[in-house]
Design a protein around this nucleic acid. Sequence first.
DNA 1: CTGTTAGCGCTTTCAA
DNA 2: TTGAAAGCGCTAACAG
Lengths: 341, 341
Amino acid sequence: MSIQAVAAKAGVSVATVSRAFNFPDKVTPATRELVERVARELNYLPNASARTLRTQRSRVLGVVLPTLLNPTFAECLQGIARAAVAGGYAIIPVTTGYQLDEEERAVHLLLAGNVDGLILVVSNPSTSTALPGLRTAGVPYVLAYNRHADHPCVSVDSEGAVADAVTRLVLLGHRRIAMVSGTLAASDRAQQRYRGYLKGMADAGLDAPPLIEVPFVETAVDALSHQLQATRNRPTALICSNDLLAIRSIRAAHLSGLHVPDDLSVVGFDGIALGEDLTPALTTIAQPNSDIGRHSVELLIQAMAGGTTLQADASLLLPHAFRDGESCASAREHEPHAAAS
Amino acid sequence: MSIQAVAAKAGVSVATVSRAFNFPDKVTPATRELVERVARELNYLPNASARTLRTQRSRVLGVVLPTLLNPTFAECLQGIARAAVAGGYAIIPVTTGYQLDEEERAVHLLLAGNVDGLILVVSNPSTSTALPGLRTAGVPYVLAYNRHADHPCVSVDSEGAVADAVTRLVLLGHRRIAMVSGTLAASDRAQQRYRGYLKGMADAGLDAPPLIEVPFVETAVDALSHQLQATRNRPTALICSNDLLAIRSIRAAHLSGLHVPDDLSVVGFDGIALGEDLTPALTTIAQPNSDIGRHSVELLIQAMAGGTTLQADASLLLPHAFRDGESCASAREHEPHAAAS
DNA sequence: CTGTTAGCGCTTTCAA
DNA sequence: TTGAAAGCGCTAACAG
């Protein structure tokens, strides 16, 4: 079904059909209705490729994210999708599995696909190989979750959030607080969160035990169980770099015969919706995942409307919230191995 | 960057550039390398819209799903994405929130976007308003998770799976087994699973208590807690229509002072990866979510290669597996309220 | 092996 | 208010 067919059947020119759809008030009500009726009869759908080719605008946004298996990004994507539709845009999401080369491949794919703009969550803006190319290509883009002085970003103050969380744990009587993280090198967020942890510990005058880094999420439970059993001065609280890690930490504690939160408090980061349905309900630093997506889209659309590309000073810092759950409690008055500490 | 520019700079015709990219062996190695070098220098990316317009093939697949907030569909989408990339296709996913009108809107959007084929998870194939249009449009499509005699579907035998699960529970000594489901009318899968439950109960010669239908997932925990507290002949086991519901059921049990699995066994359906990390680890009927996505794509690509549309007889029934966890145990020898039963 | 050229479906001047 | 026609970037005959 082409515009030609509609024009022929309606007895008007293709230009008129085009106008009837794109500028309804530039044609007389009579012809407009005629065209609309015929189009409906013929089941006409304007061809997006032809339109894109002609106008040089696709009304499609590319989205690059690490994975959808982490509900954090699924929630964010949901926010992106909703805002995109509201703004008249479609989206093409591509996942990268936290791999640098995949990030670059994804950007290429999307650029070749004529997207008008990009929203991306990269491993690390500083080391990303995809970003420089994007910049020179002149395509508007915005980073979500990442935080970097040279790029437009929509994020939260991870560092401050974790530092605050440490303070809370200290107020609950915890002294031996450890941090659990994925590969530090693979994510600027993990690095920021770790810095926040170190800051919080320093502020409280506490020694920070070595970071518990679990390179592969699949092995997190085993690695953690090992740590929880082996350590003599076992931590009484764990701050986890994300909720998935927190969930696995709770399991690791269980497998080590520790009860959460009585023997071990666990705090997550992300605020995935599922966390509230767990038993114990996850105590976590909640990010507004859906809003991060929404604001990214709105920023992008706004910039595109102005025909410009986004600058770093357009960055947005969204509020986070400490979400109380049941995986976190006061440190026991009576600590085991007290003599050894 | 157009093909013209590359041709000019390389001193060849546009046709040669096109060939160098699409049929490398139809040009001499020398010119091919020349073209490739110039293209790289100019940072040339072929324009997808122009190519689509010309060839009438977009190499894009549309994906329609209820939501990405349920990890089941996120896992499936991951499988779809991987298979699509392997087959040289990009995907555009659209979520519908289980709403009929959204399903129709999504299909329209995708069709206008020139997708070559569609993979969809609809609420109910029988009542779907989007499917008939799709059929007449002649666009290849396949349903995932749904099951229907008139459409090509990739699914598992939900009915048989649930019936088997009931049998297992019976063998564990359970007699009072209830089923928890979302809105039955909203999903053919829920209906199939319920039928399987009824069949399993009948086979065991047991009375099936009324279905516990929780219309809105958000309220599931409250509604369930209420049921678990109010019932005199409280069930000793719950079969849940999906894993999210199972997780909420475990929480509801906890809030009602019941321990899982000692006081109540809970079995889910879906096999989301997260279930294995929970405490207790979720006992569930696992679907091969990623494979469902992969097979859907492969079926579709295969059909498109043959220039045909998929028929109902191409449907695939994939194997499911009962995944043992910790949320399910033998019924207590010594049942409370035994006298009343 | 390479070049010329028509045309995919649409929007957008420019004229009428 | 409407129509004629050019052209977006690419591929695929067809000719050489």
